[in-house]
Computed example of a mutant assay.
Amino acid sequence: MRTRMLEAAEELLDASPDRDIATRAVCEAVGVGAPVLYRLFGDKNGLLSALVDYGFDRYLATKRAAAPSEDPVVDLRNGWDTHVEFAKSHPAVYRLMFSPSFATVPSAAQEAMRLLREVLDRCAAAGRLRVESGLAAQMIMSANIGLALNLVTQPENYPDPDLSRRVRDAVHAAVLVPDAGRRRSAEDGSLTVAALQLAAILRDRRTELGDPETALLLHWLDTLAGA
Rank of each mutant, 00 (worst) to 15 (best):
P72V: 02
G46I: 00
A92K: 03
A148H: 04
K88N: 10
D169M: 05
D18L: 09
F56G: 00
V175Q: 06
V52R: 01
R184C: 11
A50I: 00
A137W: 02
R58Y: 06
R183N: 15
A65N: 10
V36F: 14
Y59M: 09
E208D: 15
P106F: 00
E10R: 10
A148N: 02
S99N: 03
A50P: 06
A112F: 03
S101M: 07
R183Q: 13
R183F: 15
R64D: 09
L218A: 01
V93A: 01
Q154I: 11
D162T: 09
Q197T: 06
I145V: 13
L216R: 15
L221D: 02
M139Q: 14
L96W: 01
A125D: 00
P91R: 04
T23Q: 13
S99Q: 00
D121K: 09
A8P: 07
Q197I: 07
M139N: 13
T104C: 03
C27Q: 03
P17K: 05
F86E: 01
A200M: 02
V193L: 03
S133V: 08
D18I: 11
R2Q: 06
P72C: 01
R206I: 14
C123M: 05
A174S: 13
P100L: 02
E213P: 07
R203M: 06
R122V: 05
L217V: 03
S190M: 11
R114S: 13
L209W: 08
L221K: 00
Y158R: 04
E132Q: 12
V74K: 10
A112W: 00
A215N: 07
D43L: 02
R19H: 10
S49A: 14
V73R: 02
G226I: 05
A8W: 00
R205N: 11
L218F: 03
N78Q: 15
P155D: 05
A124L: 00
G33F: 08
A126N: 06
L129W: 01
I201T: 11
D75F: 06
T223L: 12
R165M: 09
G210V: 04
V175L: 01
N45P: 14
G31I: 01
S190R: 14
G79E: 04
D20Q: 15
L191E: 11
R206T: 13
D121H: 10
V74G: 10
A195M: 06
N157F: 15
T3V: 08
E11F: 10
N45W: 14
T104K: 04
A136L: 07
A66K: 08
L176T: 03
A195S: 07
T192K: 12
D71Y: 09
S190T: 13
Y38P: 09
R95S: 09
V52F: 01
E213C: 08
D188W: 14
D160Q: 08
N45S: 15
D179L: 12
A103L: 09
L216I: 08
T207F: 11
H172G: 13
G226N: 02
P35M: 07
R122H: 07
L217S: 06
R77P: 09
A143P: 10
T223M: 12
G31Q: 03
L163D: 01
D43W: 04
V171L: 05
V167D: 04
V175S: 02
G210S: 08
V32A: 03
N144V: 11
Y38G: 07
W80P: 02
P159R: 03
Y94P: 02
N78E: 15
V36P: 11
R39A: 14
P91A: 04
L51T: 00
P68Y: 06
L12C: 05
